[in-house]
């Protein structure tokens, strides 16, 4: 039987990543988006000692640390650094710091099992609290993504024109980075560090292959993400494999199928 908590967590994550993924594609943020799980891991790991020392919830601390951290990239880009270079600096810093943080936390705090679930991700371990947290994060992220989807697409196509047509493009830069960071950090425990990469990138990669306009791309991305999430969960439970791995493989299958559609 499928526990409703598992379904809630998976639907939440799929909706959030499915709506963000086409924004990533339109804004050409593939590299940055795939660097975010590294920063999310760092933020989530730091959440434990911060909560232990200062009180509060580790997940909230993770957001408080991780979201401003991701603004480094926007800041560097605004200073004239190439986006990919800024991302490379960001990912180097995140990876080095997360290794240091994991080492520090493992040697001083007893959070071994939670760290594993951050890396592998297991919706089957979700408590009701985890499930509602994931749902809340997803509602916020998907809401922001859907509400400003068209603006992000226009900026992605032609940033200069968007600015002259009246958009405050820098605000939208912060918006997309915030939404991506909140999703990557807030849903890390649900899907795990590894499969998060897949979930951010593949739904829109598949959607772009089968869509003729931006509305179709959004719908196709959310649908493939939901399909992969639920199918992966069912496969995981009944075949007794890690559900997040199964989700990753189903998404890969969806992507390959979309290539077939495009060839026609």
């Amino acid at each position: 039987m499928l526990d409703p908590r598992w379904v809630l967590v998976v639907v939440a994550a799929a909706t959030a990543f499915g709506s963000l993924s086409p924004v990533v594609a339109a804004r050409k943020l593939y590299y940055f988006a795939s660097s975010l799980p590294h920063a999310a891991l760092l933020a989530a790991v730091l959440g434990y000692p911060l909560a232990a020392e200062l009180g509060g919830d580790p997940a909230v601390w993770a957001l408080a640390v991780g979201v401003p951290l991701s603004y480094i990239v926007v800041y560097l880009v605004e200073r004239g650094v190439e986006e990919d270079v800024a991302t490379a600096v960001f990912v180097s810093f995140s990876v080095a710091s997360s290794v240091a943080a994991i080492y520090y936390v493992l040697t001083r705090y007893s959070v071994g099992t939670s760290l594993w679930s951050l890396i592998i991700g297991d919706p089957l371990l979700a408590s009701w609290r985890d499930a509602w947290w994931a749902a809340g994060v997803a509602a916020g992220v998907a809401g922001a993504a859907l509400l400003f989807y068209r603006e992000q697409v226009v900026i992605g196509v032609d940033r200069d024109f968007a600015a002259t047509a009246g958009l405050r493009v820098v605000l939208y830069d912060y918006l997309v980075v915030t939404a991506l960071a909140v999703a990557a950090i807030g849903l890390l425990k649900a899907v795990g560090f590894v499969v998060e990469h897949v979930f951010i990138l593949l739904p829109s990669a598949a959607a772009v292959n089968v869509s003729r306009n931006s509305g179709e791309a959004l719908a196709a991305s959310i649908l493939s993400s939901l399909f992969a999430g639920l199918a992966g969960l069912i496969l995981g439970v009944y075949l007794d494999v890690a559900p997040s791995a199964a989700i990753g493989f189903v998404l890969l299958g969806v992507y390959l199928a979309s290539l077939g559609v495009r060839e026609k």
């Binding site: 509400l147 400003f148 697409v153 047509a165 003729r212 931006s214 791309a217």
Partner: peptide, 25 residues
Amino acid sequence: HVYRGFPLTGRELVELSLRLRGRPP
């Protein structure tokens, strides 16, 4: 300078661009 890798029709491009002034959503 125009990015063409994302699915978007010419009509959408013109219509979306006309609605960028004023308040969201």
